[in-house]
Nucleic acid binder design. Structure first.
Lengths: 167, 167
DNA sequence: TTTTATTTTCAATAATTATTGAAAGTTTTA
DNA sequence: TAAAACTTTCAATAATTATTGAAAATAAAA
């Protein structure tokens, strides 16, 4: 297999993994492209490489910048903007985790907590509260793991979990 | 807030979390409904409660059964099928994790590994292999954590991670 | 066996989500 | 200032994914 071919295959693989986890395919592909590129890329170059429209590139690059995993880079003698993705994939993992935690998991925890406070002590209601409680404990635990991972040093997750897993 | 109202809110909240993680909304809602129900439910009752079609109920209930988190239950004097979801949500978490790991993460690891074997030692290729390697280590670690979690006792994840997180 | 109850399937359709492309907006240069 | 270079926006459209509903299949009862 040739290098270019391998890069394309990687970009596609990553895109399809993203899709099944509810992340926009193009966003994942743009990020993957920037990761394997040895130089900053302009909107044109991304359009060309992934065969997508200018608007699509713009939207997804902005989103990646919002997520803090892609940044603009100035290129001497060039007027247009160029983009790079830093190569530390732990950082990527942390950023994505952090955002999703905040956007998706925390709001659910708030709702679950609120629902605990219904004033009803019938058998049904107690059963319901029990389910909610279990659900909260799973969600809280997952949330806590993610929290710890994103606060810690870059390689905390790798070094610590590796030990735990191997014990 | 009334109990019924709370149940509905819970079912909806769960459905929307599922959606953002690439899981079918109805599937999550059917599961949630069965979890908070104090008795086994028939297809009709699910249709009624969630206002969805017979076909939709059938497809999603089958999928939940395939995932091993819902099962049929025989009801005396009734000819039709009834369904229940066992109340342990750790089991749900484990099953979902297990399936997604197998269906989505493992295939990606195989592709990443295959791509490592390109015979090219140019600067570009070496950089690319570096990115792939980092990516594999993140993916492998995540995979390993999930693996451990699903193999262990039901409450391993809760008890162990809670300690770790609080340390 | 025939009838009736129930489940399954799947083509058609609806709903959702992603993408385009051209117009409007912004910034830089002349 | 005006023109050129470039970026952003967003209504229209395409692509994807979920849902319906009725016909076919299956199972139970008469």
């Amino acid at each position: 297999m040739k290098l270019e071919e391998a890069k394309i295959k990687y970009i596609h693989t990553w895109g399809s993994l993203a899709t099944s986890w509810g992340i926009n395919k193009t966003m994942a592909q743009v990020h993957a492209l920037l990761l394997v590129s040895t130089k900053p890329l302009s909107a044109e170059e991304i359009m060309e490489a992934l065969q997508i429209s200018r608007g699509n590139v713009n939207m997804n690059v902005r989103a990646l910048i919002d997520w803090g995993i892609v940044r603009k880079e100035f290129v001497v003698g060039e007027r247009k903007e160029f983009f790079v993705a830093d190569k530390d994939i732990w950082e990527l993992f942390k950023q994505i985790t952090k955002e999703r935690k905040k956007r998706e998991i925390e709001p659910v925890l708030r709702v679950l907590d609120e629902l605990q406070h219904i004033e009803d002590n019938s058998y049904d209601a107690v059963q319901f509260k029990k389910v909610l409680h279990d659900l909260s404990s799973v969600t809280t635990t997952v949330n806590g793991i993610l929290d710890k991972a994103i606060r810690a040093d870059e390689h905390w997750l790798l070094s610590n979990f590796t030990k735990i897993i191997k014990k």
